[in-house]
Design a binder for these strands. Structure first.
Lengths: 126, 126
DNA sequence: CCCATTGTTCGATGACCATCATACAGTGCG
DNA sequence: CGCACTGTATGATGGTCATCGAACAATGGG
């Protein structure tokens, strides 16, 4: 399992570290490189729990950041996605001006078995 | 300076909730009444992770608070135990001047399956 | 080539939290 | 009783973090 990015064929892309345009590619952290403390801290926030749940409720690569309905502004939302990437929970891919998201289910669950399932359980009020 | 309990007030108190002495019984929260956010927040702290692990490494009711080896003073340690009780992770029982501890394995695991096991896994550096 | 959309960065701000030192209280023992 | 031990409460402090507004940048469409 050497590949960390889904090296798909989103357009004829040159090198660029898997980035099609001139934009700085988002910094990702593989779950294997994530600490338990980091993972728990990332999920110990109501907004981020919400983001993860909304993300899990839709197919991969269908939601851009602006599509998430959380009660914070753009800046804070961007910050939360940075945290989620740093915890190995979310992968992002640029498509045009948008940044599409994917929940790293398998990888994260392999590193922290059960944690994601626990977070996605429906019977949680807050 | 704040309000302090006088011995007289407490001498008149009825119902000491299963407490043998005159000391205020520790406030417990059952895991069923605990929010996922609360549980994750409680475990998203290096000192508390350490406390839970040390607690899990010994038989129930064998460790008093002072027996735990964490790099904080008594006051902070007491605070951490309050948080752990509030998250349904720890149960405490007074015995003499000491306060003995027990990890609520079954109950907590029933409420948050896998979370405790995840925390107790040995291959975690920080 | 302008421009709306999307997302990031930056500085500031306020809230929360972990920690400490200190004072206080309960317990049991000599 | 007096004392050592154990844990809690209080108030202060410093640090981290979530949030915002505003400025900036990238992208693609008219």
């Amino acid at each position: 399992m050497g590949k960390r990015f889904s090296t798909e064929e989103w357009d004829g892309m040159p090198e660029r570290t898997g980035n099609a345009g001139h934009r700085a590619a988002p910094v990702h952290t593989h779950p294997d490189d994530v600490t338990l403390l980091t993972a728990l801290s990332a999920l110990a926030d109501p907004v981020r729990i919400q983001l993860v749940r909304e993300l899990a409720a839709q197919p991969d690569w269908t939601l851009s950041c602006s599509n998430f309905d959380v009660p914070v502004g753009r800046a804070a939302k961007s910050h939360h996605f940075t945290v989620l990437r740093g915890a190995g929970l979310v992968e992002q891919r640029d498509q045009g001006p948008k940044r599409l998201n994917r929940l790293r289910r398998e990888e994260f669950d392999a590193r922290f078995p059960g944690l994601l399932e626990l977070t996605l359980r429906a019977d949680e009020s807050d």
